[in-house]
Write a protein that binds this DNA or RNA. Structure first.
Lengths: 329, 329
DNA sequence: ACAACCAGGGCAAGGGGTTGTCAAAAGTTG
DNA sequence: CAACTTTTGACAACCCCTTGCCCTGGTTGT
């Protein structure tokens, strides 16, 4: 399949190829009448400029890549959706990459795409700081659920969110929580932990941590057992998937939720509102995060790489109170 | 960002650019020693062939597009995941497109990508047959959850699946089912309906249909109410999302599930196993469907468009028995 | 009436690779 | 050692589009 080229249009319209090109990209450099004629001919021929040829010399691709740490996690759906829609709105293509929780794969894929995208949205990147900095020197990069001084990012306000969680638990009479941590290389995991600890300190509440765990349902059993031995009355799981697994294990062990133990998750995935008991979780507009990330990226790709401090979009979180948390016995 | 080119490699290695090119693409046309030397130099320079330049004349892009009717639907996660992994395994990039349940958007996006991908996987395409045929003439196309004579496709065996559903309901004593239909332009919706009807006929069971409905939770209320007036004892919803919405509405109307009414869904999404009551649903290896679809596409892209009849991969389905179905009162 | 301008449009050089053609170098055979 | 066949590698055209530069013909100013 080879569509009509600029040459076909040019000869059909009786002008030079440069005129056709300009009719599209630099309208001011071409007479109004000529321009219209060219456009009409192009339309009639079904001409579409070849993106590769264009990319070849402009290094502009109308494509952004989004790398997610694990596409299996339903939490990313919203993020992906928001990113996809924003990209489409600007007539950009969204390339989706799954890093499978592996820094190596993540880096490999990024290298592969380096010459053919305008920039990267890295969601919960597992890459070490140096790699990120090096990458950012070559292409615009926007971080999601991760921060690095000097790089723009979009994320939910987990510091405030963790405070909400702690306040909620505090008001229910809990004096001891345990954080069921996410992966070691997850920036989000350390952020949540330190925010929880700070908030707990302020409330005079004890905060322990167990883990790290891979944040999947299957790991919930392990996490639940580990958390139980701390004696905490409130379990804060790294995400909803883990929380759901934890609840299942607790039920299996005849520990009542929330009568004996309260459980809180993060992300407010679709299933959090459907499981039993319905899960109290820290939600936020993930789609907006995806949207914002792509937006920042597109802006960065247009103007020169650096002007002013990097953008930092922080969206609010809200604790969705449901049935998995309750007053301490 | 402009990486080293083939020229840099050539001069660094002291050979012609054509030699470098052939060292990569046509090893047999180059001396073993020369080849190794070139490769070493390239590696050392961090050279990566520019995909655009290559695509420009070979019309081969190492990219496949996957169009889904609605990215919001969790059912697609698995499909996307399978497709993404298969594409990656062949060092191809997966471009994700959301058609937002609109044939117009679907077509627009496809046009946009036409010159830059090797082919399309169309999941639950809402496009009319003519469009599909026309598209297939330009690029390899693989259908998912849809069939069209002449085009390859990958799908789950819903005919058998519907038979399983009917047999299951029959064995529970149900004599009257109603299908809560999906969108009018959905091939899957008509397929399921006709398969259900056939199976019901064979079992001497009455089968009604209501709808069409947009297969989302929010539409469940409407669907449930419509289904109730048919007097059927078994509701077969177009997908799990709709089924979940239906169950919620039934509970709200004090109709007990499954004591008063049995509900069956399709897809076996993650949440189906978590909601209350847990949903009986027709499952299948969706990831494998995605994998198969990309695999077919890749093969089709290599050899000439047409040789032999189009591949048709049908994967088995299995009814996941859970709590939303029970014996008729 | 003529110089100075300017808008509109054409020419041609890339941008990074691939590939058909061809000549030089190397190896074979008698 | 001449005549001939195989490798190897170099040249250059081409893929499609963008863009700097130049040329033309028409305006404007004095």
């Amino acid at each position: 399949m080879r569509g009509p080229t600029i040459y076909d249009v040019a000869s059909a319209a009786g002008v030079a190829t440069s005129t056709v090109s300009r009719a599209f990209s630099t309208p001011s450099r071409v007479g109004a009448a000529t321009r219209e004629h060219v456009l009409a001919v192009a339309e009639q021929l079904g001409y579409r400029p070849n993106p590769h040829a264009r990319a070849l010399l402009s290094d502009h691709h109308s494509t952004v890549a989004m790398v997610v740490s694990d596409i299996t996690n339903p939490h990313y759906f919203e993020l992906i959706r928001g990113a996809e829609m924003r990209a489409k709105a600007s007539e950009h293509t969204l390339v989706l990459v799954n890093a499978e929780e592996s820094a190596r794969i993540e880096l490999e894929q990024i290298q592969r795409l380096l010459p053919s995208v305008d920039g990267f949205v890295l969601a919960a990147s597992r890459l070490p700081d140096e790699n990120l900095a090096h990458l950012a020197a070559q292409r615009p990069v926007v971080l999601v659920s991760r921060e690095l001084p000097g790089l723009p990012c979009a994320l939910l306000d987990h510091v405030d969110g963790c405070r909400q969680i702690v306040q909620h638990l505090d008001s229910l009479g809990h004096r001891h929580l345990v954080y069921l941590a996410g992966p070691r290389s997850s920036w989000m995991a350390s952020t949540r932990w330190s925010a929880l600890r700070t908030a707990a300190d302020e409330a005079g509440m004890r905060a322990d941590r167990v883990g790290p765990f891979t944040p999947k349902v299957a790991q919930g059993g392990l996490a639940a057992d580990a958390a139980l031995v701390t004696g905490a009355t409130a379990f804060v799981a790294h995400n909803d998937l883990l929380a759901i697994g934890v609840v299942q294990r607790l039920q299996q062990r005849m520990v009542r939720v929330p009568a004996d133990v309260s459980v809180v998750g993060f992300d407010d995935i679709f299933a959090a509102d459907l499981c039993t008991p319905r899960l109290t979780t820290l939600g936020g507009a993930h789609a907006d995060v995806g949207r914002a990330a792509v937006e920042i990226l597109l802006k960065a790709a247009v103007r020169g790489t650096a002007d002013g401090p990097p953008v930092r979009v922080v969206l609010p979180t809200e604790l969705r109170l449901r049935e998995s948390t309750g007053p301490v016995a």
